[in-house]
Write a protein that binds this DNA or RNA. Structure first.
Lengths: 220, 220
DNA sequence: CGTTGTGAACTCATTCACAGCT
DNA sequence: AGCTGTGAATGAGTTCACAACG
C-alpha cells in the first residue's frame, strides 16, 4: 500500500493530519527565509504537541535534520506538494452574493494556487455585471463555460434550496470537487469530492464550548 | 428554560460528537412534526453509521424508544439544550466587509438563537451607516457597547493583521467566545473560547481530496 | 548539547453484535 | 417484526520515551 514512489505522496493521510498540514503551512509563511524551524516551535504556534508535529511531518519523508530542525523552504514545498497545492486549481463560484465577494477578496487565495475563473448567478440584475474583473454569467452557461475553462473546483454559495440543483449542474459539467457553503444535505455522485462549510454549525460549536466552560469550570 | 431536568449536560462530549449533533439537528428540522426518526434514517442523511448515531444520542440520555425510534421534537429539544442553543446568544461582528454582510443575511442565524447586536469597523466611511438595521460603530465604542448589550460572542471578520488587536479588545470588553475568520494565529487568554474558520484551509482540504482520489483510484 | 524519527503504550473513537424492549 | 442501548472488540489517533544523529 504505502509505496514510496518518485514523488512520495504515500498512503493517504487522515483528514485531521491534512488539516494540520495546512496549519503548519500557515505558520511557515512568515518565516519563509532560509531558516530552520523545530517541531516544538510549530507545535506552539498551532497549538498541538511537538510529538504530534514530528509524527505528522515524518509521514512526508525524512526531511528533518536531527539536532537542527526542518528547513522552512523545503518543508513548505513538500507540504504544498502533498496537499496538492503545488499547482493552480481553477475554480468557479455559483451564487454571487456577499459570501462570493468575500471569497474573491480573501487574501492569498490566488497565491495559494486557487484561481477563480468563473462567476455564475441566476439573478438577471447581476448577469453581465463585473466583480473583480470577472463577468457574472447565467447558470445556463455553466456547463459550457466550465468545459472551456477546465475549472475543476466549484463553490456553492447559493441559498440552501438551490444548492442541490447547482451541485447536480456542476457535476454534469464535469467538476471534480465541491465546496459547499449552503446549509443543505447534498446528494452527490461518489466520484465528486465534497467539503461542506456550515457557518451556523461553527456558531453552534462556539456556543457549546462557551456553555461548557461555564458549566464545569474546566480549564483549557 | 429553567430546570435542567436530568441535567445530562455533564460529561463533555468530544468535539466531533458535538459537530455531529449539529448535523443531526440540521436534518431534524424538516421533519419537525410529531414524527419519530430512527438512527438509520439520521445516519443515512448525515453520512455516518447507524451505530454512530445511537452512540451519540445515547450520551444525551435514554430518549429513544426501542422498536420505535426517537421522537423528533424531544430529540431536537435535547440536542439544542446540550449544545447550549436553547437560548439567545448575543453576538457582535468586528469588521463589516462582505463576510460580515454574508453572516447577517445567513438564513436562520436568528432563529437558531444567534442575535447580532453590534457591528464595528474602523473605516470612517462605514461608521454611522446602517446594515440590516444596525448602525456600524467605531472600534473605540467596542468595550462600552459590549458591556451595555451584554454580548457574549464576538466574530472577527477583519484582515489578518488586525485580528490579534481585535481579539485583545474583545477580550478586554469581557467577551466569552470568539469566532475568528481571519487567517491568523491568535494568542488568547485561556478563559476565552475560540473557534477559527480559515476558508483557505477548506479550499486546501478540497484540493487534497480531489488530488488524492485521482492519484490512487481509491473507490469510496 | 538539541532535535528528529519511531517502536511501544496509551487514550480516544467507532463498529460489531446482540440482549432487551415495543 | 423493528429499533435502541451497550458491553466487547476493533481501529485510529496521540503521546511517551528514547535511540540515533548532527
Amino acid at each position: 500500500m504505502g509505496q514510496i514512489g518518485p514523488s512520495e505522496l504515500s498512503g493517504s493521510l487522515s483528514r485531521a493530519t491534512a488539516q494540520r498540514l495546512s496549519q503548519y503551512l500557515r505558520c511557515l509563511r512568515p518565516a519563509l527565509t532560509g531558516t530552520t524551524v523545530s517541531s516544538s516551535q510549530l507545535a506552539r504556534a498551532v497549538g498541538v504537541s511537538d510529538a504530534q508535529v514530528r509524527r505528522d511531518l515524518a509521514t512526508l519523508g525524512n526531511l528533518g535534520q536531527r539536532g537542527i530542525g526542518y528547513d522552512a523552504n523545503a518543508l513548505t514545498a513538500v507540504i504544498r506538494r502533498t496537499l496538492g497545492i503545488d499547482r493552480t486549481w481553477k475554480s468557479v463560484i455559483v451564487g454571487v452574493g456577499n459570501l462570493a465577494r468575500a471569497l474573491l477578496r480573501y487574501r492569498g487565495f490566488h497565491e495559494q494556487g486557487f484561481e477563480i475563473v468563473g462567476l455564475f448567478d441566476n439573478d438577471p440584475h447581476k448577469i453581465g455585471t463585473q466583480v473583480d474583473g470577472l463577468t457574472i454569467d447565467s447558470l445556463d452557461q455553466l456547463a459550457s463555460s466550465i468545459k472551456t475553462s477546465k475549472a475543476e473546483l466549484g463553490v456553492i454559495a447559493v441559498p440552501p434550496e438551490s444548492a442541490q440543483l447547482v451541485a447536480d449542474e456542476l457535476t454534469r459539467a464535469g467538476i471534480k470537487g465541491l465546496l459547499n457553503f449552503a446549509p443543505a444535505l447534498l446528494k452527490i455522485a461518489p466520484h465528486i469530492r465534497l467539503v461542506t462549510v456550515d457557518l451556523a454549525i461553527q456558531f453552534e460549536q462556539l456556543a457549546y464550548l462557551v456553555r461548557l466552560s461555564r458549566t464545569s469550570e474546566n480549564g483549557e
